[in-house]
Design a protein around this nucleic acid. Structure first.
Length: 331
DNA sequence: ATGCATGAGCC
DNA sequence: GCTCATGCATA
């Protein structure tokens, strides 16, 4: 039954791609160097990739790899144990994606996203101990074309490069400590305002900020929990900060609560890698975070997973390592 | 809250 | 094919 996706099985459901300007994605060259290979035995192990060696790597999973690869912050990082099925083959529908969950904001203004008026009362005061944003966001978005999207497709908010320092943003804005403080503040205010992460994501599209579109609940959640890359955090901060200002403002004057959610679409299935396989992957990752295509293929076969699933797993694992909470930048 | 995935841009 | 931002689906 054909193992679908060979990298691109799903085509963009929406034709009109927002596309963002050719802005530099910040030089990650140094970051890449930052991560050294801890595998001296790598070549040996993966050179032959024979059973004994693989077994050895897998054995390591029980100890080393696990601690290396796991990540969730103060949260529980359940390894999907007990969720063993591999639905690798027949999932994924060429479906569509977005017009659904995001369609909750036809043309609403602020206020509409704010939950109950009661909780809003307590939201008045906002000392705003965090560095300015109102203008820095504009500057950033316009001068650096830091695009955050449009709905429907991929929206990337690029972290403003160095030049941002000359536009009102100080190095304080990029300070992990400051980001953490803001993230926490943001979350607290959001909750007090009775707004969900999903609401915030949708609301961003109504802010009419140049190049700023909606974001998903996932992203808002990750921002609040600092599980985004440092650069991503920096890029989103001014945007979310701007939203928060609007929300606080709106909370004082209006109060509405229309909730028009309607849906009916095809759902795609999510591949789930069983715990045993995951352990092996973690073991491999510990010795070689960037296996070659050949290695990936070998590992995939060994674990009876589709090659692409393994490749993506490694990609995601690498990204995971770079997230704020896990990279020394956190504090 | 987080795992697996897509897609743009880059090499 | 990778990185990076981001999202859908699901635990």
């Amino acid at each position: 039954m054909m193992m679908q996706k060979d990298h691109v099985s799903m085509h963009p459901p929406i034709p009109a791609a927002p596309k963002y300007s050719p802005l530099h994605r910040h030089d990650h060259s140094s970051e890449m160097m930052r991560r050294h290979c801890m595998a001296t035995t790598t070549s040996n192990i993966f050179g032959g990739l024979d059973d004994s060696l693989l077994a050895r790597a897998e054995a390591l999973a029980a100890v080393d790899a696990v601690s290396v690869a796991k990540g969730a912050p103060g949260l529980n990082f359940k390894n999907d144990t007990g969720y063993h099925h591999h639905m690798n083959g027949s999932n994924h529908h060429p479906h569509l994606s977005a017009p659904t969950s995001r369609s909750i904001h036809p043309g609403l203004d602020h206020g509409e996203l704010l939950g109950d008026p009661m909780s809003m009362a307590i939201s008045m005061s906002n000392p705003m101990p965090f560095t300015s944003i109102g203008d820095s966001i504009t500057t950033m978005a316009q001068h650096h074309q830091s695009h955050v999207s449009m709905s429907g497709h991929h929206h990337h908010v690029m972290a403003a490069p160095h030049s941002m320092m000359t536009h009102g943003m100080t190095d304080l804005d990029t300070d992990p400590r400051e980001l953490e403080a803001f993230a926490e503040h943001f979350k607290q205010r959001r909750i007090k305002l009775g707004v969900t992460q999903c609401d915030v994501g949708s609301a961003l599209g109504n802010l009419k900020l140049p190049g700023v579109g909606s974001l998903s609940q996932s992203t808002i959640c990750r921002f609040e929990s600092l599980t985004l890359s440092h650069n991503n955090m920096i890029a989103l901060k001014p945007i979310l900060s701007a939203w928060l200002e609007e929300a606080e403002k709106a909370a004082k004057s209006k109060d509405k609560n229309p909730d028009i959610f309607s849906n009916g679409e095809k759902k795609r299935k999510r591949t789930s890698i069983a715990a045993p396989e995951k352990r092996s992957l973690e073991a491999y990752f510990a010795v070689q975070p960037r296996p070659s295509s050949e290695k990936i293929a070998a590992i995939a076969e060994k674990l009876d997973l589709k090659k692409n699933v393994v490749r993506v797993w490694f990609c995601n694992q690498r990204q995971k390592q770079k997230r704020m909470k896990f990279s020394a930048q956190g504090r």
